[in-house]
Design a binder for these strands. Structure first.
Lengths: 336, 336
DNA sequence: AGGCGGTGTCGAAGCGCTTCGACACGGTTG
DNA sequence: CAACCGTGTCGAAGCGCTTCGACACCGCCT
């Protein structure tokens, strides 16, 4: 391995000069800068990460805690993770991948060992166990998701309330008077991950405003569960003509079952999904949907974290505005 | 931050003794060990990662390069990544997440900076650009996937040839004489990722042995593409009664289209999928399938890498044996 | 009793980098 | 012309840890 000292010798300058060329923290004359840079090239020098971290007490690493479970929102999580990794690189950071498995301990371990300069937490619950620890440390952190108490925390998330409202607005605008929300699995609500509840809140508020009736039912993924959920909805609210689906695993079953029942989409019933673009555009009926802006969320989280590390940080909640894309699954409500 | 020196002072021993307690590299008397451990607890000491890396020239970090594209095999990739992260932790390693974006440069950067002790590469192509660099460095590495030349490389992958053969064996055993393979998108074959080709090779070999005719067609995801592919197959081989699908995004479209055409599964046609368990068990017909053992692959890759770092390494290709699970989508071929 | 090996502990020397204060030099300024 | 300033460079002191060789001590053997 080539060291700083070797580069310095090769360029005929002192080690500190090389360091300053690299960091740009002091002005360096054009001539020596060029000489040093040439030496770096020629010798194929790469700064030793450990030494740098030790001396500067900054590792240039951002830790990303992803949920352990791979049962829901996998593509979204993956997309966020990848966006985080690539965005981090453009800011000179690498990303350390932590799974939820270790739980709160991981926060302590990472902060304690100075392994990472900052953390990004995904899959945040309303009462998240990691938050107390996070508040204790001086490490910069950003949450993707919204806990109950956001005090002193920086959060990035889709504005799920607005999302719910937007879906209702769209359906109401098309004349639908009875709407059903097919939500995530019951476990998601029990875990209090927040986003699901917030969506429903947004739906309810807007529905009241628009004079629309709403029924909300959770739904496990798969066909059997969907069939049951759908039956219950038909039972309780036979007049339902609009569906809002927030559950990737329920989308295709829903469309299939409606088809089997001879209810045409969008002529008889309209469906609006809250899901990644890909799911919406590849479904058997191209779905009118509000996309989950995974990339944007990952990108913004990193930018916030980098800003904080640069001292330009702000503790604030950033809610991304939802966008509804009209596709083939929604249309005017059938006449009376 | 608490330092080793502070722990030493608190416990009334020297710094080196504390270090030896931590590493276990020299014998320590029961009494001092306990005293030191108590001090560590009380002070909440965590070793500084940078200092440790510098002094020991080992970072206890494994770099994981995941593909940048999020268009295929996302759940599989995610599952592998998570398995890698959790398995790594049980061996005392953390995982650095690199995206394919940086390409071969990342290999150089990581090796040069001593940021990671080892690398695990996913999404390996037959002629992968990263391999020459990998062979140059002395860093331990394991590939998930199989390049054309595995010389001097350690690889872990599902045995896709055996997988293809297994599918044929199952269908042939049920009396199917004409089989169609619905493969990945054409781009996958062009990129020469290997696994797709190997599957087809396995299929062909077994088919010849079993006296079965095989037609192989690539297929983009989605309904339109599937409809087209299916039409071509019906055209060229109207007698086809068995399908092998190796494309997550094609599974549901295929089942739907068959249904629309009035061809019952499994009475009229049988379908065998090569896909993650979850997809197979949640599809609209529970699919007979060969699972992609994502977790196992991630786990084995880490174990290999750790073995290498421990000097017990072997350069060898480890192919995991496929397992076929019979579910509801395959049955006896229709008579005549 | 003297010597020997084993065990447990310590001191000191780095690992490769950053960063602070010092300083030399040439160009301004009063 | 002297005092002054800004610019560019250097030396040295660590950052917190690992690890090597040294050494003190104990019990054992002869």
């Amino acid at each position: 391995m080539v060291t700083l000292a070797e580069v310095a010798q090769h360029a005929g300058v002192s080690a500190s000069t090389v360091s300053y060329v690299l960091s740009g923290k002091r002005s360096i004359s054009m001539s020596t800068r060029e000489r040093v840079e040439r030496s770096i090239q020629q010798l194929g020098y790469h700064p030793n990460a450990g030494a740098r971290a030790l001396a500067s007490s900054r590792s240039n690493i951002i830790a990303l805690m992803v949920p352990l479970r791979t049962d829901m929102y996998v593509p979204v999580m993956m997309e966020i993770a990848i966006a985080v990794a690539t965005t981090a690189r453009t800011h000179g950071y690498d990303v350390l991948l932590l799974t939820g498995e270790e739980g709160p301990t991981a926060v302590r371990r990472i902060a304690g060992s100075s392994l990472a300069d900052a953390m990004i937490l995904m899959d945040v619950e309303l009462q998240d166990e990691r938050l107390p620890l996070l508040r204790e440390t001086d490490r910069a952190a950003v949450l993707i998701g919204l806990p109950a108490d956001t005090d002193g925390l920086t959060c990035v998330d889709l504005d799920f309330e607005a999302t719910g409202a937007l879906c209702v607005e769209h359906l109401a605008g098309l004349g639908h008077r009875e709407i059903a929300v097919i939500g995530e699995a019951a476990a998601v609500y029990e875990r209090h991950t927040g986003f699901a509840e917030r969506t429903v809140d947004g739906v309810r508020a807007k529905a009241q405003e628009a004079g629309v009736r709403v029924l909300h039912r959770s739904c496990e993924g798969g066909y059997a569960a969907m069939a049951q959920t759908l039956a219950r909805i038909s039972d309780e609210r036979p007049g339902t003509s609009g569906f809002i689906v927030q559950n990737e695993a329920a989308v295709e079953p829903l469309l299939n079952l409606l088809r089997q029942q001879g209810r045409a989409v969008p002529e008889d019933v309209s469906v609006v999904a809250i899901c990644p673009e890909q799911v919406a555009s590849q479904a058997s009926v191209r779905l009118t949907s509000v996309a989950i802006p995974a990339q944007e969320m990952g990108r913004r989280a990193v930018e916030q974290v980098v800003a904080k590390l640069g001292g330009r940080g702000t503790d604030e909640v950033e809610l991304l505005a939802p966008e509804l894309t009209v596709r083939a699954s929604s249309g005017p409500a059938p006449l009376g």
